[in-house]
């Protein structure tokens, strides 16, 4: 089966122009990454800030062009430098951003937020656009009457639902999610993750999920790719990576992730007590 999205040796260079005081240099943000995602699956890209994970997400979402390598969507080679992606391609790939406070226009009503992709990419008549937007609001757990409200009237979790709804208006097959829950509270995070899981099942969506939170990745991912300094240091199924991380960087990430099981807490409390008695306090 052809994967929904495939990357072969993707490279992205950023050119930093020189000035009177500094020589020009080239920063290689993504250093030749290969990946592929099958329909209905989730690939999680894990890494720290500066690792190139968001650059890769932008390349997959057809926002940014790679400087080397090949990107294939549904088996077709895509080069956004050669030709701007048309409505067909835009309908296939959509993106959800990290910060729902920054990614919605404060002066645009929710209805307009949702119908805009249809206005730009399709010639569906206005009445049907409205119906589709109302139906989509319900699908993501909001109310049809939210259609005429502005973004500031919604909480962070509701805004992220709106951003997801906007991304789904064109019936995409691939959704690129760049840290979609890291700006949200724990309980709201759980709701949005549940919503994403439901939508994936219902609409057969494929996700590329960028995150730095391993506990979220463990919950949502099928495949995991760990990247560090622009290189994919470890790639594999979720079970394999969580059971047996081999690369030192992956191990470091695991070691840094807080543990919430009671045994670990008991051990820590005991250590602290011992240290205090040792110090004679």
């Amino acid at each position: 089966m052809t994967p929904v999205v495939e990357g072969r040796a993707i490279v992205r260079d950023y050119h930093v122009p020189g000035s009177m005081f500094r020589r020009a240099k080239t920063v290689r943000a993504v250093k030749g990454i290969d990946f592929s995602v099958q329909k209905g699956k989730t690939l999680a890209i894990v890494g720290e800030s500066g690792s190139g994970k968001s650059t890769l997400a932008r390349i997959i979402a057809l926002i940014d062009a790679p400087t080397g390598g090949e990107l294939l969507i549904d088996g077709q080679r895509v080069d956004i430098n050669a030709s701007r992606p048309g409505p067909d391609l835009r309908s296939k790939v959509q993106m959800v951003f990290q910060n729902p406070y920054g990614s919605l226009n404060p002066r645009q009503k929710i209805g307009d937020v949702l119908t805009e992709p249809l206005v730009i990419n399709t010639d569906i008549p206005a009445a049907e656009r409205r119906d589709r937007a109302r139906a989509m609001l319900q699908k993501v757990g909001l109310m049809p009457e939210h259609y005429n409200r502005y973004p500031h009237m919604f909480s962070g979790g509701q805004r992220q639902r709106i951003a997801i709804a906007r991304a789904l208006m064109l019936n995409p097959s691939l959704l690129v999610l760049d840290e979609p829950v890291s700006a949200l509270d724990l309980s709201v995070q759980a709701q949005v993750l549940n919503l994403l899981a439901d939508l994936q099942e219902e609409m057969g969506l494929t996700y590329v999920f960028v995150s730095h939170d391993l506990s979220v990745v463990r919950y949502i991912a099928d495949e995991v790719m760990v990247i560090s300094e622009g290189e994919a240091v470890e790639q594999g199924s979720r079970e394999a990576i969580f059971a047996n991380p081999t690369h030192p960087y992956t191990r470091q990430l695991f070691a840094a992730t807080p543990v919430t099981d009671t045994q670990a807490i008991r051990a820590r409390v005991a250590r602290r007590k011992a240290a205090r008695q040792g110090a004679g306090v």
Binding site: L186, S187, Y219
Partner: peptide
């Protein structure tokens, strides 16, 4: 963590993704 008394604390703890037991996260 062992024995949360308030329902809200219980809810918070069960919303942790690493405590997910089934397909869905309790919210």
């Amino acid at each position: 963590f062992e024995n949360p008394q308030s329902p809200y604390t219980r809810a918070l703890l069960s919303a942790l993704p690493e405590h997910a037991t089934g397909d869905r996260l309790p919210t």
